[in-house]
Amino acid sequence: MKKHKKKIIAGVIIAAILSFAFLWCDNAAGPHSRDAKNSESTKVTKTEELSKIPENFPSAESFQKTDEQTETEGNADLAEDIPLYSPSQTPSKDVSYSEQNGMDIKDDTGKDEYQTEPVSEGNPVPIEPENTVISDKELTCTMSVRCDTILENIAWLDKEKTELVPKDGVIYGEQTVTFYEGESVFNLLVREMKRNKIHLEFENTPIYNSAYIEGIGNLYEFDCGELSGWMYRVNGWFPNYGCSRYQLKAGDKVEWVYTCDLGRDIGGDYSSRNGK
C-alpha cells in the first residue's frame, strides 16, 4: 500500500483535474447548452442509431451541419458525417434539379466537389468565383447587416464586446447598393464594409472554395456563446454554400445576420432549410 501511495495520489489528482475541466467547459456551451449536451450524447451512440436516423436526424445532427458553421469544423467531422448524408437522405428531385443546373454531385458522397449538398429545388446553385467574369454593367440589390440575436442573448456576449453592439441591432441598415454583374455576395460585402469603414475579417477556405466571414464590426464568431457566428440569407433563403459562390442577381435582398444558436434562432438551421 505504502509503495503505491504516490501512484494513487497521482491518479486522484489527474481524475480531479479532468472532472474539473469537464464541468468547467460544460458551462460554456452557449444559449442552448442543454440541447447541445443531448446532441453530444446522441453522437456517442451514433453507431447504434444509424439504423433509425430519419427521425433523429434534425435534432441530433443539425448542430454539425449549418452552412457556414461547418466550415469551422475539420475534415474529420465531415468524413464522419458522410454516411448520414447518403444520397437517399436528400430528396431525389433536389439532386436532379441541382445537376440540371450544373452542380456535379458525386455518387458516393452525395455532395459536390466542395462538400456542398444538392441545393433545394427552386434556389440558385453555387457558381465558382474563379469561373465568373465580372463585367462593367452596374446592377443594384439591397443589403443589410444585423445582430438582433445578440441583444436577446446579451448575457452570453463577451463582456469586452458589449459596447460594440448597436442599441437596435443594426450594424448596416438595409439600403440599395450597386454591384457589377458577376459579383458574389462576398465581393459586395467586402466593398460595402470598406466603403462604410466597418471592420470585417474573413478567411479563405479552399476546401469549400469560399471565404468564411469570421467577424463584422469586431463581432466575431463564438463571441456570443459557442454556437454563434455570421450567416447570410438571400431573398429569405439561407444558402447551403459559402458566400463567394453565391452570384448576385439584380434586385436580390441580401441579409447578413448574427446567430447565437447555429442558425435556429434566425430560422436558418439545417432542418428548416430542407423543409423537415
Binding site: V190, H199, L200, E201, G215, N218, Y220
Partner: peptide, 18 residues
Amino acid sequence: NHEGVTIIEYLPSGNPLT
C-alpha cells in the same frame, strides 16, 4: 490577426490592418 476598431490600412488580401 485582423481584430480591432482602428483600421490603419487594408492588406492586399482584403482584410484590415489594425
